[in-house]
Design a protein around this nucleic acid. Structure first.
Lengths: 166, 166
DNA sequence: GCGGAATAGTTCAACGCTCAACTACGCTAC
DNA sequence: GTAGCGTAGTTGAGCGTTGAACTATTCCGC
């Protein structure tokens, strides 16, 4: 399930506006994050025909022992809604990269299974994507900046998705 | 114009895979970035009916002296393609928040102009959005982490969009 | 000034995502 | 065993995004 928002009442009074320094930090981060994700997605899509969203699904499946996963678990893993994942898996099925299989121990459940063709597609795309992540991200950062990036991500994850930080 | 990708040949040989530490750093950052942007967008959309993409357009216009901007400049500012911006401005026009105006000194050009209604809508949304950015981001980070976030953003921006780092 | 290239912006079709139904199955208790 | 509720997943309509094709204007060299 994707991040839900509870529309709680806002605190009354003057909002806590961002000062100039906070503005700069926020915008720099936001722009860089958008540009980075955008560039990585475009690079992957144009070089391999696989969008980053689809790539993440293939990676998740490939990392399980049997190369299969329950739909809901896969959706959680990919920060995707169930509906979105269902649509995406349908498209991947059309490409012959994934197939659906009813879940043995729960008649409601479906398993998404990575096919050999799907695994091969992933094997083709992975080096290209990793190289892009290096080029656009790691090559630009010092070891200390990488450490800070990790700290930032983990700190925020604890707040945004406590369950994942197990 | 949005980040373009030149499909240059990949370096031959074994790709430079990410080691376990790099993987962790990359995934933590990527997940947190996606969750954060997603949550802020949902919060804003549900509380105000303005998506983050539209909000950025209104902000950009409101920050100019005359509350108007050339379409291409606005697209660059919002990390948007021209096509995307054109569609978005059409929708904002339907809401009466923006209007188009031919550019005096360039017959090809169009100006997007923020209306009073548009400005009022922004004034209503801004405190709600700022509060969300505080709650989901700044309140979770130490001053040092904020400084690192800024450094990360600026470092990456210099690589991803050198022109913006003027 | 005139022809060709470049620039500004829009439009269209294909696709992806969201949200709200909807179907189907399982779980619990009576 | 069956009613009622919760869970798993799919579907469809509506909207947003993408990339390519298109129109209109300006710029440049002669």
């Amino acid at each position: 399930m994707i991040s839900s928002v509870s529309p709680e009442p806002l605190p009354a009074g003057e909002p806590r506006w961002l000062d100039a320094e906070e503005q700069k930090a926020w915008r720099a981060w936001l722009y860089s994050a958008q540009l980075l994700q955008d560039r990585l997605d475009r690079d992957l899509t144009h070089r391999t025909g696989i969008s980053h969203a689809y790539y993440e699904i293939l990676v998740a499946l490939s990392e399980t022992p049997e190369r299969m996963m329950r739909m809901s678990e896969l959706a959680d893993r990919c920060l995707s809604s169930r509906s979105r994942l269902s649509h995406a898996v349908s498209r991947l099925e059309e490409r012959g990269w994934v197939r659906r299989q009813v879940c043995a121990d729960d008649g409601r459940g479906q398993l998404a299974v990575l096919t050999e063709e799907g695994f091969a597609a992933l094997e083709g795309a992975a080096p290209i994507h990793v190289e892009a992540v290096r080029r656009e991200l790691f090559d630009q950062l010092s070891p200390e900046q990488v450490e800070n990036m990790r700290d930032f991500g983990e700190t925020l994850l604890r707040h945004l998705d406590p369950d994942r930080s197990r």
